[in-house]
Design a protein around this nucleic acid. Structure first.
Lengths: 143, 143
DNA sequence: ACAATAAAAGATAAAAATCTCTTTTATTCG
DNA sequence: CGAATAAAAGAGATTTTTATCTTTTATTGT
């Protein structure tokens, strides 16, 4: 469904959202441990997200990653689009480049519904909305 | 969503279903052209499907691939499972191995619906049911 | 039996994704 | 300023996926 990079990206950003309340910052090492992922690989991904402005970072002592208000309200769709592109939102199930209403693949019409449901979910889910439940161990980001 | 191999697999099997009416057989070359895919790569995939019994093949002159009645009624889920495994049916959206009702990831509950819809679609769509529409150029398997 | 045909199998190559290690740059604090 | 810290950037290494090429095996029809 999503690439590994994208899975890590979503988990990492959710982790930062949970841990970086009131101005706190989270180091890449803590993030990697917190979501059980390869540190340097996730670092790369977060650098990318940082350049695109959906996560914030600060170098130096007491530096780390955090989310400003705007980023907290970013949608998962924003993250997915940056990491995996928008194939998942618009692509053909069978990989046809020209698949469309006019020239549909056999799964086009039925698959459209599923793709749209997924798009809707990602578009309407924000990065920050799970923090409380994560705090309470109702939801998990590792294993 | 699906791997390239799986996209080719589905398209190839649908193509064979369409072209191998009343005992006819379809060569790998014709298949590759018919679905616009790399010939040898698809050959490998079909060999695999053949070993698993969801497609039939015959060597030698006038040989090729075809589908018996049972295979014509195989579901897309069967194909997907053989080529991509059942991660798409059961896997966690965020890649957690232990994601479950008891220890859910943040997307678990919502994602379940989408995964189930997709499973249902694949499970209830047969390999052979599009032949007529493909014949009539209402549906397409290439480009 | 023999030649032609077509899938099966084996071996390799190329590309992309995933992961690791090292060096550089920016920032803080004493 | 100088040392320590932490992200950014650069450079590889490994693994997986995708694709190609060659040889072998089975089958058919002459």
């Amino acid at each position: 469904m999503f690439s590994k990079a994208c899975e890590y990206a979503i988990r990492a950003v959710m982790f930062v959202a949970q841990k970086s309340k009131d101005g706190a910052r989270v180091g890449i090492r803590e993030i990697a441990k917190g979501i059980d992922s390869p540190e340097h690989f996730v670092a790369k991904i977060l650098q990318d997200l940082s350049r695109k402005g959906v996560i914030q970072s600060q170098k130096g002592p007491s530096g780390g990653f955090y989310l400003d208000d705007r980023s907290l309200n970013a949608s998962l769709a924003d993250i997915v689009r940056i990491v995996d592109g928008d194939d998942i939102f618009t692509g053909c199930a069978l990989g046809l480049k020209q698949c469309s209403e006019a020239k549909p693949c056999p799964l086009h019409h039925e698959f459209k519904k599923i793709r749209d449901d997924l798009s809707h979910l990602l578009q309407h889910t924000s990065v920050g909305e799970f923090s409380t439940q994560l705090d309470r161990n109702r939801l998990f980001l590792k294993r």
